[in-house]
């Protein structure tokens, strides 16, 4: 979906816009982002999300949170000493 179209939609719709089945769609959006939907289910979800301000916002946020968890988490390195300790235990 084009940024411009989204911008127009956002501008035209009230920030308070609610979706009557928001929780239902949120669950489907999450399944889709987790790769748990079929191709057919995915296009069903996308169809709704593209036409619903509230659900698009949820989709956007859900994606961003996943990205943040994936990219901003601290990654500790395993020290060579620890690997050596483990290998020693195995050999013992």
């Amino acid at each position: 979906m084009g940024t411009f179209v989204r911008w127009i939609q956002k501008a035209m719709m009230s920030k308070k816009a609610r979706c009557p089945e928001e929780e239902h769609w949120l669950e489907l959006v999450r399944l889709m982002l987790d790769g748990q939907t079929t191709e057919e289910e995915t296009s069903y979800v996308i169809d709704h999300v593209e036409g619903c301000y509230r659900c698009y916002d949820n989709y956007d946020l859900e994606k961003e949170i996943r990205e943040a968890i994936k990219n901003k988490s601290i990654n500790l390195k395993v020290s060579d000493a620890l690997i050596a300790r483990i290998n020693n235990e195995i050999k013992a």
Partner: peptide, 15 residues
């Protein structure tokens, strides 16, 4: 909560 807000958060804040 806005997606832009999450984008701007630090790793520590997410953690």
């Amino acid at each position: 909560l806005r997606s832009e807000t999450v984008k701007g958060m630090l790793g520590d804040e997410i953690t």
